[in-house]
Simulated assay, not measured.
Amino acid sequence: MQQIVDHVRTFDGVLVLAPEPGGPFPEIAWGDAFFYYAPDGAVPERTQPYGTIVTKDYPDDRSSALDAPDRFRVNIHVGRERAAQLPLGEDPAASDAFARHPQYGDAGWVSAVNPGSGTAELVLALLREAHEAARARTERRDRGGR
């Protein structure tokens, strides 16, 4: 997990939000990571992250069995078209395999539990693509476009 976070930190204009105990974020988010395109270093007010890493089951999302030891899931907004091009499996709990995000798959999110030799390289490439797409959206919005 830390290798992925460290890689994303190299992206120009990235903000990696990593809530920790005692901070201003809810306890449920502690230990997770949220990736934004935010060149000013502030969490965007009207934008969701383009990628996340979750380290535990959430109350409304237990399908990836993340409460088991040493499990985490990378979630990436790739868009519906790109998601349709990826080798997505059916089991959101399968390790080192891509699947539609258990909750946001219809919105173009994909996920991978414990990326390894079969998925790690593509996970990093997809995070880069998602970052660049977030940059493009931000630049359009800043120019007054859609």
Results as ranks from 00 to 15, higher is better:
Val8Trp: 02
Thr10His: 09
Thr10Pro: 02
Phe11His: 07
Phe11Arg: 02
Asp12Met: 06
Asp12Ser: 12
Asp12Asn: 14
Gly13Met: 03
Gly13Ser: 04
Val14Ile: 13
Val14Thr: 04
Val16Thr: 06
Val16Glu: 01
Val16Asn: 03
Glu20Leu: 11
Pro21Ser: 09
Pro21Lys: 08
Gly22Ala: 10
Gly22Phe: 08
Gly22Leu: 10
Gly22Glu: 05
Gly23Asp: 15
Pro24His: 11
Phe25Glu: 11
Pro26Ala: 12
Glu27Thr: 13
Glu27Lys: 14
Ile28Gly: 06
Ala29Glu: 13
Ala29Phe: 09
Ala33Val: 05
Phe35Gly: 01
Ala38Met: 06
Ala38Val: 03
Ala38Leu: 04
Ala38Gln: 02
Pro44Trp: 00
Pro44Glu: 02
Glu45Ile: 13
Glu45His: 14
Gly51Phe: 01
Thr52Tyr: 03
Ile53Ser: 02
Ile53Ala: 01
Thr55Val: 15
Tyr58Phe: 14
Pro59Ser: 11
Asp60Leu: 13
Ser63Gln: 14
Ser63Cys: 12
Ser64Ala: 15
Ala65Glu: 14
Ala65Ile: 12
Leu66Lys: 05
Leu66Ile: 07
Asp67Phe: 08
Pro69Lys: 12
Pro69Asn: 07
Asp70Thr: 08
Asp70Cys: 08
Arg71Ile: 06
Val74Trp: 00
Val74Asp: 04
Val74His: 02
Asn75Met: 11
Asn75Arg: 12
Ile76Cys: 04
Ile76Gly: 00
His77Gly: 09
His77Arg: 14
Gly79Phe: 05
Gly79Lys: 04
Gly79Glu: 05
Glu81Ser: 15
Glu81Asp: 15
Ala83Leu: 07
Ala84Thr: 10
Pro87Ile: 02
Pro87Thr: 05
Leu88Arg: 00
Gly89Ala: 04
Gly89Ile: 03
Gly89Trp: 08
Glu90Pro: 02
Asp91Leu: 08
Asp91Trp: 10
Asp91Asn: 13
Pro92Arg: 03
Ala93Val: 07
Ala93Tyr: 05
Ala94Pro: 04
Ser95Arg: 14
Ala97Asp: 02
Phe98Met: 03
Phe98Gly: 00
Ala99His: 08
Ala99Cys: 12
Arg100Glu: 12
